[in-house]
Design a protein around this nucleic acid. Structure first.
Lengths: 247, 247
DNA sequence: AATTAAATTTCGTAA
DNA sequence: TTACGAAGTTTAATT
């Protein structure tokens, strides 16, 4: 057990007995630590789908918010997991450590059985700061609202998140001729799905306004794929190349 | 350092000096171990977007496939990360441990600077087994192909992944009357996006066949949202409620 | 609790 | 390498 000046505390055991491992895990969950276990284990999941993973060396993390992560040596994504909101539990059964994370709505259960525990740790610390991220779709929207002419000359934004029967439109406005314009924003290169999305909004707004004059639809993104480009043409929609600001 | 009978090996230091931590990390990367570092750190990311995270206690994992994960005590997702394919590097700068993961195409860089390292570990093990998952869209497709009558009486599947100018159709077939049918499968409750997707395929196929008889479009999913249901009606598409098999 | 769409989505497959 | 769509997607916002 180690206590640091800043309140950070860690507890670690190498090759613990299953009972000792269970104690560290249980105590860690109790004090709202990040708990990690590395060893050979099997994993069973039952919930929205179901899965089984035979024995292998994996790294398991239990978070105090109820999230659980099982990582192999490959992939950015955990091979098995449980979202925040679960209740963690650690028990010994037949001389083996078992970790279980359960939630309801939907009912889901993750069960990790360790044949061998190489290391178990509990990490307590504080993290006050949140991520500052730049380059999102929201940043792209700000860029256009601050200077609508980057979209086209004399474009006038009238609303953001304007509601239609098909959902909320990113930017709603009118052009130099006073025609209604629906703008759909994407922070990166788009495919057919983005075109369909814009199409839904344009359709919905045309019905909503029941105006005879057609509503213009403009897709704003860094670039489009060939198929998306063809779809835009078919549906009479437009494209403007813009990127979210880099900083 | 601990070596197990099954070839699993772990190496861990508590409150190491930055230089000692760097050595463990560098050696771990070298031997293709999963490397973890817990401590107070700042994180900078620059790539598809860019972000900064001020000091806090976090858990960092470097995988031998090049993936990097920075986890706080909250959330299933890492607060910062790098996908597989990166090159990891560990250095000491001004007496602090710095981890860096870099890749190209696209150019991306993740930099973690530790003010304090509480624990550093390197885990080597083997994992031969892959996840066996049941309840996917593929399982739903198998269910329909094995007994097409679950979709509707006298439905005849003719192809899966049939190509159209709008993309591949999940199941293509014909009904009792010999009309062309496009089936789009979803393993869970669907919203407007799935309807748009089906619509794209039906449109494309109607042009492709340039037949006068309309192509039927059937969305297969456990259920649909209200908005999606309305969209289905508007577009003359159909819905059949089916779930992927549970086991 | 349910809906909708964004995400540094990731991941797998096919061209 | 790019494109396209699935995913036990997760996450955030709004109803």
């Amino acid at each position: 057990m180690t206590d640091s000046a800043d309140g950070t505390r860690t507890e670690t055991l190498r090759e613990p007995t299953p009972a000792a491992a269970r104690d560290i895990v249980a105590r860690g969950i109790d004090r709202e630590a990040i708990v990690t276990v590395y060893g050979r284990c099997t994993v069973d999941y039952e919930g929205r789908a179901s899965s089984r993973l035979e024995a292998g060396a994996r790294h398991v993390m239990l978070k105090p918010d109820g999230a659980a992560l099982v990582h192999t040596d490959e992939g950015q994504q955990p091979v098995n997991w449980q979202p925040p909101g679960c209740t963690h539990d650690a028990v010994c059964e037949d001389g083996e450590l078992i970790l279980e994370s359960v939630r309801s709505t939907p009912d889901e259960r993750l069960r990790v059985r360790f044949r061998e525990v190489l290391q178990v740790s509990a990490f307590s610390g504080t993290d006050e700061n949140e991520l500052a991220l730049v380059g999102t779709e929201e940043d792209l929207r700000q860029r256009i609202l601050e200077d609508p002419s980057v979209l086209e000359a004399e474009f006038t934004p009238l609303a953001t998140e304007r509601e239609t029967p098909a959902g909320a439109v990113d930017i709603y406005g009118e052009d130099a001729a006073g025609r209604a314009v629906v703008v759909e924003l994407k922070r990166r290169r788009v495919g057919p799905d983005a075109v369909s999305q814009l199409r839904r909004y344009v359709d919905a707004l045309e019905r909503d306004l029941h105006a005879d004059a057609a509503v213009r639809g403009i897709l704003v993104a860094p670039s489009v794929t060939d198929r998306a480009s063809r779809l835009l043409t078919e549906h009479g929609l437009e494209f403007v190349s813009l990127e979210p600001p880099a900083e």
